[in-house]
């Protein structure tokens, strides 16, 4: 366990020196929040969900945006490069799990980015909404903890995309497909309650809904039961994704061995 914590700390300290990358993310976050605010001003809330006021809506989207921008860039590309070049053979010789290593790197990066993105985003929202707070702001500490679970799940998804280079060669189209899944089915573009019932239920049954909406919507609909449901759902999908990733990695290991490393 110690070695994984060390990997997280190394990834976190690496992020502290990547100021430009962080500034670019902050810029993107500010643009997105600004667009969300414009979008909300036009559509209003009455018709959709009485729980979602303008403040709740924009806070909900901020948490989704933090999840998006808090993840490390190009993880799938990095893994793809290792698979295609055969460098992955060297990784296998290390006394750490390849999948665990990549996920810990993601979580370490997220540790640094989350507080900064959340702080800047919250400051901007406070300015845009005249200091109003979301209905369940007291749930923020729980949401932050759950966001780490979401990040773990999303990282497992990204590792899967990177490993798929074994068959696809170029994993970018699959990455974009998964990313759109996160946006639409994870409710990172707009709350899932905007959708018709069937699509809403379908989205909730996917890992995207579990990593996104289930966690981020707690900011306006938190109850202890909802938080437990979100945790269990995350646990379920993390186990499934871990299984899938390890299976794909197992196949990959056999192929690498056939090719001679």
């Amino acid at each position: 366990m110690k070695k994984y914590i060390r990997i997280m700390l190394t990834a976190a300290s690496d992020q502290i020196f990547r100021i430009k990358s962080l500034l670019a993310r902050l810029f993107l976050l500010i643009i997105m929040l600004f667009v969300f605010n414009l979008f909300w001003n036009i559509i209003g809330s009455e018709k959709i969900d009485s729980n979602i006021s303008a403040v709740n809506f924009i806070w909900y989207l901020l948490l989704g945006a933090v999840l998006q921008f808090g993840r490390p860039e190009g993880l799938h590309r990095q893994i793809e490069g290792e698979v295609r070049s055969g460098d992955i053979a060297y990784r296998m010789m290390r006394p750490v799990s390849f999948i665990g290593y990549k996920c810990c790197e993601s979580l370490g990066t997220f540790c640094v980015r989350l507080p900064i993105l959340l702080f800047v985003g919250a400051a901007l929202i406070t300015f845009l909404t005249d200091g109003a707070l979301p209905d369940q702001i007291q749930a923020l500490p729980i949401i932050i903890v759950l966001l780490f679970g979401s990040m773990f799940l999303l990282s497992l998804g990204t590792v899967f995309v990177g490993l798929s280079a074994l068959y696809l060669q170029d994993s970018l189209p699959l990455f974009w497909l998964v990313q759109k899944g996160e946006y639409i089915l994870g409710g990172l573009f707009f709350p899932l309650t905007f959708y018709p019932d069937e699509l809403f239920r379908f989205a909730l049954a996917t890992p995207f809904g579990s990593a996104g909406y289930n966690v981020t919507s707690l900011i306006y609909r938190y109850t202890p039961e909802q938080a437990i449901t979100a945790t269990l759902s995350l646990g379920f999908w993390i186990s499934i994704m871990l299984g899938i990733d390890y299976l794909l990695f197992f196949i990959l290991k056999r192929k690498v061995s056939v090719n001679g490393g």
Partner: peptide, 28 residues
């Protein structure tokens, strides 16, 4: 095979996005 798969993924990628927006426009 990889070439065809990538093209199909790009089409699916655009369609997923559109499905979400269709749901929104269906409401509004």
């Amino acid at each position: 095979a990889s070439f065809v798969l990538r093209i199909l993924f790009m089409i699916a990628n655009n369609l997923i996005m559109l499905v979400g927006w269709f749901a929104v426009f269906n409401t509004f």
